[in-house]
């Protein structure tokens, strides 16, 4: 799969394949959807097992669950303010889904569903619709004043308003592209260096010795990818909270 002949197929790993035989094919149930379900199951299991004990002195699982929970809660409250607690479940769900999606993609034979723009854009679109609805419900028509900052000269309105609208519309685009690009770049690099190992390995003894180089690099890259996976889930969650802050307070 990795290196057929001497060509490097770096993008083949992102191809969608229907799973579960004929039933899966007829409803378009791909390995991407299967991994999403798996991630949802894993998160549910972790949280259920984590809070099951309810010990005063937490065990390992409980400590992990509690620190994830408090990490996101602190972030939401510090970014949005006390009224941000209402949106904590949403941000926590997003964060866990993206974090587990990023991390599960690092396992052999697994698929990274966050490496598809359709998935990341769908998540960003949910955030975009939510912040718009929250702003409209809390502020009504005053929300549209957001597109024209107070104190700006009125004759600039024909320029400022379209630019502000485009800037507002670019939020889900930048949110989705950031996550998608990071995941694709990381997995393409892993694939390319993995192909080097296979190709060099076929070149006799010297090739096998040289192949240690890309192998070492891939070990480092895997560690780096764990960092990137966590960081991108964090960035997605914190940008969601910043947008929620804008929606709630509307400067």
């Amino acid at each position: 799969m990795a290196a057929e002949g001497s060509s490097i197929d770096a993008l083949g790993q992102f191809e969608l394949v229907p799973v579960f035989g004929r039933i899966g094919a007829s409803v378009g149930f791909t390995q991407s959807s299967a991994h999403m379900l798996l991630v949802v199951g894993l998160i549910t299991l972790l949280l259920m097992a984590g809070i099951g004990a309810r010990a005063v002195i937490p065990g390992r699982l409980q400590a992990l669950t509690e620190s994830l929970y408090e990490f996101i809660q602190d972030m939401v409250v510090s970014q949005v303010g006390e009224e941000g607690k209402r949106y904590f479940p949403f941000v926590f769900t997003l964060f866990m889904f993206i974090l587990f999606g990023n991390l599960i993609g690092l396992f052999p034979f697994a698929f990274t569903f966050t490496s598809h723009i359709a998935v990341t854009f769908a998540l960003a679109a949910i955030v975009f619709v939510l912040i718009t609805v929250v702003a409209l419900r809390l502020h009504g028509l005053k929300f549209f004043g957001y597109f024209f900052p107070e104190g700006a000269p009125l004759w600039l309105a024909p320029i400022i308003i379209p630019v502000e609208i485009v800037s507002y519309l670019s939020r889900p685009v930048s949110l989705s592209i950031r996550l998608f690009a990071n995941m694709v770049a990381g997995h393409v690099m892993l694939q390319v260096f993995a192909s080097f190992i296979v190709m060099l390995g076929g070149l006799g003894l010297i090739g096998k010795i040289v192949a240690v180089g890309p192998l070492a690099l891939n070990v480092v890259l895997i560690g780096f990818e764990i960092l990137v996976g966590f960081l991108q889930a964090y960035v997605f969650a914190i940008l969601t909270s910043i947008y929620l802050h804008d929606a709630v307070h509307l400067h």
Partner: peptide
């Protein structure tokens, strides 16, 4: 804004902001 810093990350963020706009 509480986002992780670093010049490389900041440059990437700026690029993504321009492209997405």
């Amino acid at each position: 804004s509480g986002l992780p810093g670093g010049s490389m990350g900041l440059g990437l963020r700026a690029g993504i902001e321009v492209v997405s706009a």
